[in-house]
Design a protein around this nucleic acid. Sequence first.
DNA 1: TAGATTTGTCTATTGCTCTATACAACCGAA
DNA 2: TTCGGTTGTATAGAGCAATAGACAAATCTA
Lengths: 247, 247
Amino acid sequence: MEQTGEDLMERRSGVALWRQVADRIRLGISNGTLGEGGRLPPEITLSQQFGVNRHTVRAAISALVQEGVLRAEQGRGTFVESRKRLAYPITTRTRFSTGLKDQTRARRVNLLRHVVEPAPTRVAEALQLEPGAPVHRLETLSEADGRCVSRGTSWFDATRFPGFADVFVETGSITASFARFGVDDYVRRSTLVSARHADAEDLDTLKLSPGAIVLVTIAINDDLDGRPIQFSETHFSADLVELTIET
Amino acid sequence: MEQTGEDLMERRSGVALWRQVADRIRLGISNGTLGEGGRLPPEITLSQQFGVNRHTVRAAISALVQEGVLRAEQGRGTFVESRKRLAYPITTRTRFSTGLKDQTRARRVNLLRHVVEPAPTRVAEALQLEPGAPVHRLETLSEADGRCVSRGTSWFDATRFPGFADVFVETGSITASFARFGVDDYVRRSTLVSARHADAEDLDTLKLSPGAIVLVTIAINDDLDGRPIQFSETHFSADLVELTIET
DNA sequence: TAGATTTGTCTATTGCTCTATACAACCGAA
DNA sequence: TTCGGTTGTATAGAGCAATAGACAAATCTA
């Protein structure tokens, strides 16, 4: 009783079938090709489409329920919880909150950790400081509508911006914090984009499941005199976010 | 006799340990944190670092040898075959060949497939055509130094650019082909970036292994009058490429 | 209420993954 | 040549992944 799965999964590839199925369901939902009307096809149908056993599909669905992507109701069906990907604009004036204003209701940036440390090499280069000069390192978690969107680590010159972290906690915004230090405006100088598998800290912080993908941006912001004021590395959950670039 | 692996792998996650190890080794090489001097640490050392059995490391290395990332020599050690990621610049004047000029010796774009088809909805919208208007669809494979860097699908207005594919085959370049039709220059209007697991066609075309990641860009190019002339979706191998954005 | 549809649970079997141990083959240096 | 370090091969056992079949529980419709 073998099925005629239109597009077979890769076996003995090091990735469990149930995880491959989960990835394809998640992708299908983002694309809109799956979950017509907010409802997923029955398990039996999916197992035939993917050419795997029903239990394998169940394992995939179970993982997606855990992630919050799906919701299963006995006797009724399985339903889609999430929506389209957020479009995060990268421009000369990239700011977290304003960028997502039209797409989400609630946005928040939480401070996870703050330390003052000697600048690592790449940070010193980016901020044009002496290697080892004191810098603030702020690790933040950005949420939109209750979902963990991104995890960022930013560095700031501790000499120029004393007590930056305290101001940030008070204002809850990088932009507002800069304003306190007399930097009324700033511009994105450069952005580097790459993608990779989520590491242990991504999984924990962004509440992802193993094998998930993160979009990584490494960016430098300048003040209006062209002096670098912020160096940051941000990890976006690739299932929730896409980046838009207007050139 | 358990090890003190500094940063343990995720078990029962649906991704085999050897594949997780392979992903981390590949990443370590891209980062430059692994493979100091072109040579990988011995299998025993790696197995202790990752907190897994030596055979698990061997499975990972075996996969990376298959991919062409590593080369193992009995009695001597395991060596790195590949280099740092290519930086692919996205600017108002994004072109494949010139963008990678300083980083690679040989660059080539191969035409995989060409059809004239009625424009799908999103293509028609992007090119400002009537839905169903005839368009060229060109599927291309870009290589640099013999490695498959990206797979692109581009659409062009068939009415404005009759026989575009033939010209492309002759010139081997989008830019040169446009020139033949009197479009001496063009600019990137917008770029959308996302990341996902490679699908079956990515695996085949880009010679990736299952679980690999692709960076996906969806872009529109305009002529100097601001009229859209090209709509494209490009899949980059995330292990080989990162995108740079100067704003 | 009866029946069809759908998700949830259970048991069993097969094959692959990971571990553990041992030893062979090969290389380079003393 | 000898020896330490490294990759390659073999074998066996424990645990996870995937399949299969059967049935329970919940929901909806006729």
